[in-house]
């Protein structure tokens, strides 16, 4: 019998993604589904998609999902998780959803140490509404509401969510990844797995920020988008692990009394 080396994850439905060619959402959806399959948690996972290009995520993930108003996913997920502590609960959010309108909800969910996992897609623009400036838009980056490029005097600075949230004592695991090369895609998958494992171990709030291409609104082709992420975007948003309480607990255990 032929050995299967590649197939659709069980946790994805038989549906074609509506995302634009080259969009990072599709890659991350697949990675999450693979992790859910590998952990065997499809039946106990509940997801909360955002208002954003991924608003239809429930058409793709074959797990229980509930829509939330724009930005409120972490609040909704908190409610779900508190009632059902043994389920795996995740939010899937864009940068406008998480870091603008929903900053209060995400910040306080992290600060309360809600035992949920947030998958945070940072594409430096508002995708769904047509490419307006996001809180994560880079300085001088042109968008439809920052026509001359983002200016600090008028629009402030790109928000570094991972750095910020890692300061909160309620957060357990925070990592920033990219999905613009096979090696980075593999790394992102490991981070998603780790975040879900943290939730399983009831360590508190976990979040993976994923730098993700929006070729449509960046007005670039896919290859240039990947290059731009390497050359420019990742310089402002450096990938890395910003918080990992599993390390801290291990270290503490190693210290001789």
């Amino acid at each position: 019998m032929a050995k299967i080396i590649f197939q659709k994850p069980k946790s994805l439905k038989e549906k074609i993604f509506h995302y634009c060619p080259g969009c990072g959402h599709s890659i991350v959806h697949r990675l999450m589904a693979e992790v859910i399959d590998e952990m065997g948690i499809q039946g106990i996972t509940i997801g909360v998609p955002p208002a954003g290009c991924a608003v239809l995520a429930y058409n793709y993930f074959d797990v229980d999902m509930i829509e939330s108003p724009h930005g409120r996913a972490p609040a909704m997920a908190s409610g779900i998780k508190r009632m059902l502590p043994d389920r795996m609960v995740f939010c899937y959010q864009g940068d406008g959803d998480l870091a603008a309108i929903g900053l209060a909800e995400s910040f306080h969910a992290a600060n309360r140490g809600e035992n949920i996992t947030v998958i945070f897609i940072n594409n430096a623009v508002y995708g769904m509404t047509g490419g307006q400036m996001a809180p994560t838009t880079l300085l001088n980056q042109k968008t439809t509401t920052s026509l001359a490029g983002r200016q600090t005097l008028l629009d402030g600075y790109p928000v570094k969510v991972s750095e910020l949230f890692s300061q909160l004592e309620g957060s357990a695991y925070i990592e920033r990844c990219m999905v613009n090369s096979p090696a980075f895609v593999n790394k992102t998958k490991k981070a998603i797995r780790k975040a879900f494992e943290c939730q399983k171990a009831e360590l508190g709030f976990s979040m993976v920020e994923i730098l993700s291409a929006c070729p449509t609104n960046w007005k670039m082709n896919t290859i240039d988008s990947c290059q731009w992420m390497d050359d420019v975007m990742s310089k402002v948003f450096p990938p890395g692990v910003f918080k990992d309480v599993t390390k801290a607990t291990k270290k503490a255990a190693e210290v001789p009394s």
Partner: peptide
Amino acid sequence: YPITPQNELTEYMAEHMRKAEGGVFIQSES
């Protein structure tokens, strides 16, 4: 704050309000 189907109005103000004398445009967080 951007929302369809009125994004063009927000975008129009982003472009033209700052050109009008004394005009202020802010894209708010919500």
